[in-house]
Every structure is written in C-alpha cells, then in structure tokens.
Simulated scan of single mutants.
Amino acid sequence: MAPLVRALGAAARLIHTGQHYDDSLSGRFLAELGLPEPTLLAGVGGQTRAVQISVALAQLDAEFAARPPHAVVVQGDTNAALSGALAANARDIPLVHIEAGLRSHDRAMPEEHNRVLIDQLSDVLCAATEDNRANLAAESIPAERIAVTGNTVVEAVRDALPGPDERAALLAAHGLTPDAYVLATVHRPENTDDPAALRSCLTELAALAEQVPVLVPLHPRTRARAEAAGLEGLLAPLTLLPPIGYGEFLALARHAALLVSDSGGVQEEATVLGRPLVVVRRSTERPEAMAAGFADLVAPGPEVGRAARHRLAEGDAGLRRLARTPSPFGDARASQRIVALLTDLVADRAAGGAALPAAA
C-alpha cells in the first residue's frame, strides 16, 4: 500500500490495526517506506482470529463515526482487511479492495474466507490480473465494479530495492556471493503450528544447506515453535537472521540463487526481482507466479528439496530466463489507476451517483 499512500499524499489517512504488532515486523517498515504516522489500534495483536476481527472492528467503527472518510481502502486478505471492510460497510462508506479476486479455492485457509467476504462487500474491486477478474466474475460480482489495475507490489519493490552499491555492500557484510545462496522464510501456521510440518520444512532446508548457504530471517513465531518442538538441531546448519527490513530483504532476495517461502507477498516479489521460488504450501492464491515460470508449488516434505535442487541446477540459464520474463502482476502503474478510481468514486458519491468504476 505504500505507493498508493504516497500517491494520495495529504488525502490519505493511515490506520494500523496492530495485527502485526512486533516493531521489528511492523514499526520499522512504516519508517523505512516513508509512510505517515498511523492511527494505531490497541489490543489486536496476539489474539485469536475472532478476537482480532471483533476488537479491530469495534475501534474502526468508532474511528469512522468520529472522522468519516470519503472511502475506505483495504488491501489483501488479513483479519485487519476484513475488519476494515466490515466497518466501512456498517457505516455505509464506499469500500475499495486492493488485490481483489485472489482465490486459492482452499477452504482450510482462513484468508480465503476473508477474501471472499471482502470482495462481496466492496464497491470497487481492484483486481491485479485478468485471472483475478475472472474469479470475481465467477462469483457473480458485477463487471462494472471490477477494474484490472495491476498490483502495487511492483511499484513497492522497485521503490524499496536498494541500489547496486548498497546491495553489494550488504552481501559483502554477510559474506555472500551473488547467485550462490538460498533465502528462505517460513511463518504460516500450516507450516509452524504442526510440529511434523515444521520438522519437514527445516529438515529440507538443513539438507539444502549442505550444498549452498541457506539464509533464514527467522520469524519470532517460527523460532518459538521450533524451540517448543525441540528442533534446534535443524536450525544449526542454517544462517539465521533476525527479522530484517524490507529493503534488506529485497536486496538479499534480488541476488539469491533461489527463494524458498510460504509467504504470499514473496510470490509476487520474486516475479519483480526475476528470481526462482519454491512455495512451501498446499495451495496458493497466486497461481500467476507458477504459470509465468517463476515458482513451484510444493507441500512440506521431500518434494521441497527436490524442487529446490532442480531450480538450483538450472543455474545462470534459469536466472537469465526469468530476468527476461515480465512480472504477471503489472506494469508499476497500479497506484495511478487506483488513485483515479478513488477520485471518480468520491466525486460520484458526492454527486449522488452510483460510484462504480470503469474497467481499467
């Protein structure tokens, strides 16, 4: 959302729900991305899903009653996004959903329920891709409410990626050679809450570390789960880093021979950076990354190691191929399109119109 917030300037008011409440995971990102000081909600982080939604919803309702916005913009599929959508709907405030139409078709994924609910509530649905538009059409959402804008992540990555000299200095500080290491992240509950799944993920990464350095910026949740399950021995072969800033992560990802992750955002970022990715999940809402040749989707287990070694074996030829492949998530103009949609939405609302976008 950073490119959109910056594009809106003084017209943007940022509300931080606190779902990601650790300063190393949240506060430093706000500063690094040059975002304005947000309104911060209280008591949301660290709660169960139902409590997160209800606590955030109550506070957002009070905020919107005291200072009604012209429109509410939510991004993605988090509990925070659903809370914002419900609060906007309850106050009859126009709702714009960024990344509308993502679908994994996996009902075991809480985010899937959030996505569907937010899209049904939204007045303007900003689909990143034509596939996302098709998903929305299949759910009988009127075409005039949908606009294909691309994804703001393309701009965010290009804006936040450090320059070549800074990247070279960072790699040197870590003792790394470009295109000769693996960068991995593991944080989703499906891979961390189940000790067997976590053991499987760490076993494959540890085995991969016998071939090539494996860097893991370790999420606090993952570290705690690994220690509780007695898996410290599998962490030993890995190069563990504390949670790192967005620019540092992008710099490390840009020169990694391979990314291994269960993150949704990394699936998009890898396509902008031109890096191969092994997605460690049962399902994904971003099949475009696979279709474009950037990513392989594998469930936790031995297939993770096989897919990783296959990608590493492609070497320079594989990296050159991906460098020539455009990201399926857009052309770095998504924020411009969304600002135009918001401008039209507010104008139409003020004039008593239907407040519906033209497809972009």
Rank of each mutant, 00 (worst) to 15 (best):
A10M: 06
A11I: 02
R13I: 04
T17I: 02
H20R: 06
A42T: 14
G43W: 13
R49D: 02
I53Q: 04
A65E: 14
A66H: 12
R67A: 09
R67W: 02
H70A: 15
V72G: 03
Q75K: 03
G76W: 06
D77N: 06
A88N: 07
E112L: 08
E112W: 07
N114E: 08
N132H: 10
R133F: 00
A138N: 07
S140H: 13
S140W: 12
R145G: 01
P162W: 14
E166S: 07
A168Q: 14
A168Y: 09
D179Q: 12
V182S: 01
E190N: 07
N191C: 07
D193N: 13
P195N: 04
L198H: 10
L202A: 06
L205C: 07
A207E: 09
A209Y: 06
Q211M: 10
V212A: 00
E227H: 15
G230P: 13
A236Y: 01
G247C: 15
F249G: 11
A251E: 12
R254E: 14
S261A: 10
S263W: 03
Q267C: 05
E268L: 04
V272D: 00
V272C: 00
A292Q: 11
F294M: 01
A299C: 00
V304R: 03
R311Y: 02
A313L: 03
G315E: 01
D316S: 15
L319H: 09
R320E: 02
R321G: 10
R324G: 14
S327T: 15
F329S: 03
V339P: 11
V339W: 06
A340S: 12
L342H: 08
L342R: 03
A351W: 08
P357E: 00
A360D: 13
